[in-house]
Simulated assay, not measured.
Amino acid sequence: MHEGAPAGTGWWEARRRAHRVAAPLGVTRVPLAAAAGLVLAEGVTARAPMPAFDTAAMDGYAVAGPGPWRLCGRVRAGEEPRTRLRAGEAVEISTGAQVPPGADAVLRVESARRDGGLVRGPVPDPGTHIRPTGEDAAAGALLAPAGVRVGPAMLGLAASCGHDTLAVRPRPCVTVLVTGDELVRFGPGGAGRVRDALGPMLPSLVEQLGGSPAAPRYVDDTPGSLTAAVSAAGAESEVVVVTGSTSVGTTDQLRRLLADRGARPVVDTVACRPGHPQLLAPLGDQRWIVGLPGNPFAALVAVHTLLGPLLDGLTGRRLPTLGTAVVTGEVRSAHGVTRLVPVAWDDDGASVVAGHRSAFLRGVALADALAVLDPGWTSGSTARVLPL
């Protein structure tokens, strides 16, 4: 089935613009324990060769020359070899230990036989079971470039090559302003009243996308209330997110606020469903305002369209490339419009999850990803997918 196409910036272009306009924030240096989830502002380099010494890759015997070999000691991990091996000599060695000078190879323990003070076994080829100095990386080698988000493996890598701190971009502070006199914050909605879903949802989403969320603030629909709230939030945060005030109704104040400030939007509506009435505009030096629709699923789509790429740009992270999957399911289409729908992984790719109307979060709450269905998509064809 087809619907009429809304005007606005194309979804892919809106995403690119939001990333492109954001200049990375300044650089700070933090201990490894505080770096998880942040983005590298400088590359991570090897402070010494990795490994830093010739290392035994197996438990066994470091041997020199042809056998049998006279056993003349042992080396455990963490110890420094005391002697240089000569032809016909061996030392017992453990995995991870430093191979003594003069050793040609390591004869693994399963292939060796102890005979009094002698070790017998097949003569290994030179270099067997030895990890040579610098095999993984030479001193000074770039191991990870700037712009990479720090995860557990990155922390381990940085520690293994001698770093105690990392240069990172700080998380941008994000304040969410929730508008709408019809909203209630506790219990179920009622006659004319709707339970707020965005206040509980958006802070964790902001944190997941690399921002530092402030506590949501609730703004009534009286004239001037949004202007005061935006001014206060903009003095404290790099990004102000406004929900439910992006349309052109009598209570929708955001566009009037931007016009009064002379702020020209970078993106003003997006040709996608849901989430068409979303916008991005400058709020001042290194300050941005993102307008989200009031409907919860539409707001989530807008977050991934504009706010996520904006936060990537502010933290110096590249715009992520979306993977592809075969997507199956029944989706209402519209000419010239990108549809974003929740999908769950299955054996053949991904299938559309039911319950994804603009105001309903059931489908996306159960989904693994959002499928980005460009115009012309048909069930069973390939689409880009944005992990949730």
Rank of each mutant, 00 (worst) to 15 (best):
T378Y: 12
L322Q: 11
I93Y: 14
R185A: 10
A138C: 12
V270H: 00
V372R: 00
G78P: 00
G65I: 03
G249R: 06
G316Y: 13
H2M: 05
L310I: 09
M154P: 00
A34I: 01
L257G: 10
A62F: 12
D268H: 15
L306T: 03
R256E: 13
P203S: 05
D115E: 12
V341N: 00
E80A: 13
L32S: 03
V230G: 04
V331N: 04
P375C: 04
S247W: 10
T133Y: 13
G224I: 09
P124C: 06
V331F: 12
T128H: 15
S247Y: 08
L314R: 05
V174E: 02
V352D: 00
L279G: 03
D221S: 15
E92H: 15
P101A: 15
E182I: 07
R29Q: 06
H19V: 01
P31I: 04
A228Q: 11
A229F: 10
E182N: 05
A48D: 07
P274E: 08
T321E: 13
V174P: 12
P24I: 03
V39Y: 00
T95E: 13
V266E: 03
E182L: 12
R185N: 03
V184W: 14
R357H: 14
V270F: 02
V91Q: 07
L177E: 02
A52Q: 11
E13Q: 14
V106R: 11
T227Q: 10
Y61H: 15
A158V: 06
T179P: 01
P170T: 05
A359F: 15
A354C: 04
L283W: 02
G96R: 08
I130F: 12
V174H: 14
S204H: 15
A62E: 06
R114C: 02
G78L: 07
L307E: 03
P68S: 03
G249Q: 04
A271H: 00
F360C: 06
A214V: 02
D220N: 14
V290Q: 00
D347P: 00
G234T: 06
G116L: 05
G8F: 07
Q286T: 08
T382V: 15
E79P: 04
T328M: 06
L107G: 13
G102E: 08
R362Y: 12
G244I: 04
F186W: 12
A56G: 05
A191R: 12
P49C: 02
G234F: 12
G102Y: 13
D348T: 15
L143A: 08
D104T: 14
T179I: 09
G211F: 02
G147R: 01
R193I: 02
P274D: 08
G262Q: 08
R332C: 08
V75D: 03
A62R: 02
G78Y: 11
R318Y: 02
G199S: 05
P188I: 07
I289E: 00
I130G: 13
L202H: 01
A137I: 08
W288V: 03
E238Y: 06
V123Y: 04
G180E: 03
D104Y: 12
A344G: 11
D136H: 11
V248N: 11
V353H: 04
L226Q: 07
V230P: 00
A64R: 11
V239W: 00
G189W: 11
L366C: 08
G262E: 09
A103R: 09
R193P: 04
L300S: 05
T175R: 15
I289D: 01
T227F: 11
V266I: 11
D346H: 15
L314W: 09
